[in-house]
Computed example of a mutant assay.
Amino acid sequence: MALVVTLLGGESTGKTSLTRALCGHLAETGLAAAEVPEHLRHWCEQQGRAPHAHEQAALAREQARITDEVASRQGVDIVIADTSPLVIAAYSELYFNDRSLWSEALAWQRHVDLTLLMGLDLPWVADGFFRDSPAVRDAVDTAIRRELRAAGQAFQTIHGHGQARTEQALRAIGRRLGLNLTTTEPSQTSGRRAWNCEKCSDPDCEHRLFSGLIARNNTGDTRP
């Protein structure tokens, strides 16, 4: 089985862009990387609408099935999945007040090798009926964090813009593989000194760090 990496987050958190960037870079290193697109988005494009409550479970299971199928293909080293059933479970709770999908989604997520949660530091961009608002994005993030923490599921939050974001994700993947996959040192990916705990998987620690960074930036303080 290939190493499975899932990117979690609500709308406009950069999951698709990061998925493509990671697959492109990993291929350049000689690793066979396979992309798993977001099934929910594909379904919405085909149907021309958002799913109803009774359709959510099937969509979540299909996302899991596709990811498992790609991971089992011969010759695939790494799978980068642009979402997981957890995101659909969050939408089900948010839109339909239905928490029934969390248990199955978390059970599947436990078998994932690396869970990366997209930070909320990217600007929200409208995208037709596929995206609602920054408030929805924040609510999805809150729900996913809550359930991952409650289940004791390790995850790492990925922050940064452009190449800095890609490099941070590559460092996380590289640690799982015992390889150096990045093209730059951590301190070269941004204008400030690398965070000492930037790469830990403690979500509370990460959240405090990111909140402090926002507060300093709002006061014009650019120190690390």
Rank of each mutant, 00 (worst) to 15 (best):
Ala2His: 03
Leu3Ala: 02
Leu3Ser: 01
Val4Ser: 04
Leu7Asp: 02
Leu7Thr: 01
Leu7Pro: 00
Glu11His: 00
Glu11Asp: 01
Thr16Leu: 10
Leu18Ala: 03
Arg20Trp: 14
Arg20Asp: 09
Ala21Pro: 00
Leu22Asp: 01
Cys23Phe: 13
Leu26Ala: 06
Leu31Val: 01
Leu31Phe: 02
Ala32Pro: 00
Pro37Arg: 13
His39Pro: 00
His42Ser: 14
His42Thr: 14
Cys44Leu: 08
Glu45Trp: 15
Gln46Ala: 15
Gln47Lys: 14
Pro51Gly: 01
Pro51His: 05
His52Gln: 11
Glu55Arg: 01
Ala60Ser: 07
Gln63Ala: 10
Ile66Phe: 13
Asp68Ile: 02
Val70Gly: 03
Asp77Gln: 01
Val79Asp: 02
Ala81Met: 07
Ala81Val: 02
Ala81His: 04
Asp82Pro: 04
Pro85Glu: 08
Ala90Trp: 04
Ser92Val: 04
Glu93Ser: 11
Leu94Asn: 08
Phe96Ile: 07
Asp98Ser: 04
Arg99Ile: 06
Ser103Cys: 09
Trp108Tyr: 15
Arg110Leu: 08
Arg110Trp: 10
Val112Ser: 03
Asp113Thr: 02
Thr115Ser: 12
Leu116Lys: 09
Leu117Ala: 03
Met118Asp: 04
Gly119Asn: 13
Leu120Tyr: 05
Asp121Val: 04
Pro123Gln: 06
Trp124Ser: 02
Trp124Cys: 05
Asp127Ala: 10
Phe130Tyr: 14
Asp132Arg: 13
Arg137Met: 03
Ala139Asn: 03
Ala139Pro: 00
Val140Lys: 06
Thr142Lys: 12
Ala143Leu: 15
Ala143Asn: 06
Arg146Asp: 11
Leu148Arg: 11
Arg149Ile: 15
Ala150Arg: 14
Ala154Lys: 13
Ala154Phe: 06
Thr157Cys: 05
Thr157Tyr: 06
Thr157Arg: 14
His159Asn: 07
His159Val: 06
Gly160Met: 09
Gly162Phe: 01
Gly162Ser: 00
Gly162Thr: 00
Ala169Ile: 08
Ala169Arg: 09
Leu170Met: 08
Gly174Pro: 02
Gly174Thr: 07
Arg175Asp: 07
Leu177Asn: 00
Gly178Ala: 05
Leu179Arg: 15
Asn180Val: 14
Thr182Gln: 07
Thr184Glu: 07
Glu185Ile: 07
Pro186His: 03
Ser187Gly: 09
Ser187Thr: 06
Arg192Thr: 13
Arg193Leu: 11
Ala194Glu: 12
Ala194His: 12
Asn196Thr: 12
Lys199Asp: 14
Lys199Leu: 15
Pro203Thr: 05
Cys205Asp: 11
Glu206Ile: 06
Glu206Gly: 01
His207Ile: 02
Leu209Trp: 09
Leu209Gln: 12
Phe210Val: 13
Leu213Arg: 15
Leu213Phe: 15
Ile214Pro: 00
Ile214Lys: 15
Ala215Ile: 09
Arg216Met: 12
Asn217Pro: 00
Asn217Cys: 08
Asn218His: 12
Asp221Ile: 06
Thr222Pro: 09
Pro224Ala: 13
